[in-house]
Each structure stands twice: as structure tokens, then as C-alpha cells.
Amino acid sequence: MDLFKFFSKETPSKDVAKERLKLILIHDRANVSPQFLEMVKGDIIRVISDYAEIDESGLEIKLTRAGEQGTSSPALVANIPIKKMKEFGR
């Protein structure tokens, strides 16, 4: 027996499968390409840059599902690290 596994209480593989499936299906159902996300990303940078200096390398945008349980409606979530607000943006 693998003692390490025994003590660490590994997540059951079916839970891993379920989480992965949920995410895959959001992408499949929304039918979005990586190019689409890149385009959105570019536009967001352009718009926000008028108001704030953003850390482009840290910008993250992804498709997830809305709410905690909802599997049906996809949600676009963006994490935009701001370096500094621009003067007139306040």
C-alpha cells in the first residue's frame, strides 16, 4: 500500500473528472476559441488603459460558469492587475 496516499487523503479521481468535465463543457457549449479570448483581452487592455496603468503580463481572462452551482450559463471572468490609476480616472 502507498502510505503517502493513505495519509494524504487524495481527492477521489471521480471528483477530478467531474471538475474537469464541467470546465470542458463550458468551453464546448460556448464554442469559443482561444483567439476569441485573445481578442477580448486586447480590447480590454485598450479600454482600461485610458483610465489606469495595467500590468499586461498579469492580466488573466477566462471562461467559467456563473454562480457556484450553475453549470448552464458561462461567465467571462477577468483579473486585471492595476499598477497605477491615471489622474482623470479618479
Binding site: 477521489p12 479521481s13 473528472a17 453549470t71
Partner: peptide, 18 residues
């Protein structure tokens, strides 16, 4: 296998597929 949590069970699948 489902009992051990090593295979997707019925609820998992009906939850995922509408």
C-alpha cells in the same frame, strides 16, 4: 469503482449533462 469514488457516479453525470 463508484463506491470507492474512482468512477463518475449517476448523480455526477446527470448533474453535468442536462
Amino acid at each position: 469503482m463508484t463506491k470507492k469514488g474512482e468512477m463518475l457516479n449517476i448523480d455526477d453525470m446527470t448533474d453535468i449533462l442536462a
